[in-house]
Computed example of a mutant assay.
Amino acid sequence: MNIDQDPDQPSGAGARGTCTRETPPGGVLLYRLHGDHLDGVDFDEPQDGVRAVLVDLTDVGFFGSSALDALLRLRVAAQENGVTVHLVAPQPIAARVLQLTGADTLFPRHASLDAALRALA
């Protein structure tokens, strides 16, 4: 799930990407993506007891085909378990990639993490 991050590389624009996993209350699984180079991102499959998966794109500066592929694989795995994957705050580049590929219609989207958690409460 975690992508290696070069300790000499600053976070933010141009930084290697990271993916962290959190479990907020309420049966929600949260993945937070950070950085630009998300080539190695891979998500765990949703676990028992998870009713929704959130992917927070707030801190993603670049969103390429590898990240899109990982996101689509996560959606398929989640659907097999009856779980919906929601996107949180896709930044303009990610939103554009999702739109151009038609993947924007596959995921509910939320403007912020708070909004997503409220909608799932």
Rank of each mutant, 00 (worst) to 15 (best):
V83E: 04
R21T: 14
V53Q: 07
G17V: 09
G49A: 13
Q9A: 14
L30R: 07
D4K: 02
G26H: 08
V41A: 11
D39N: 11
D36M: 05
R21C: 13
L98A: 08
C19T: 07
T58G: 00
Q91H: 04
P46G: 14
G12T: 12
T84H: 00
G14A: 05
D59H: 08
G49F: 13
A13G: 00
A52L: 10
A89F: 06
H37P: 00
H86T: 06
P92N: 14
L33H: 01
D6M: 10
S11D: 05
R51Q: 11
V76C: 00
G17W: 09
R96A: 13
E22Q: 15
L98R: 05
G49I: 12
D69P: 00
P46R: 14
D59K: 04
G40W: 02
V76E: 09
T18Y: 01
E80W: 09
G17P: 03
R96K: 15
V50K: 03
A13W: 11
C19G: 04
R51L: 08
L57T: 05
Q5Y: 08
V60E: 01
E45D: 15
L33V: 04
L57Y: 05
G61A: 09
T23P: 00
E45P: 09
V88L: 05
Q79C: 09
H86D: 00
R32V: 11
V60H: 01
R51P: 00
T58P: 00
G12F: 14
T58K: 05
V85L: 04
S66L: 08
I93V: 15
G40Y: 03
A52N: 10
L98W: 05
V97D: 01
L54R: 07
L30N: 05
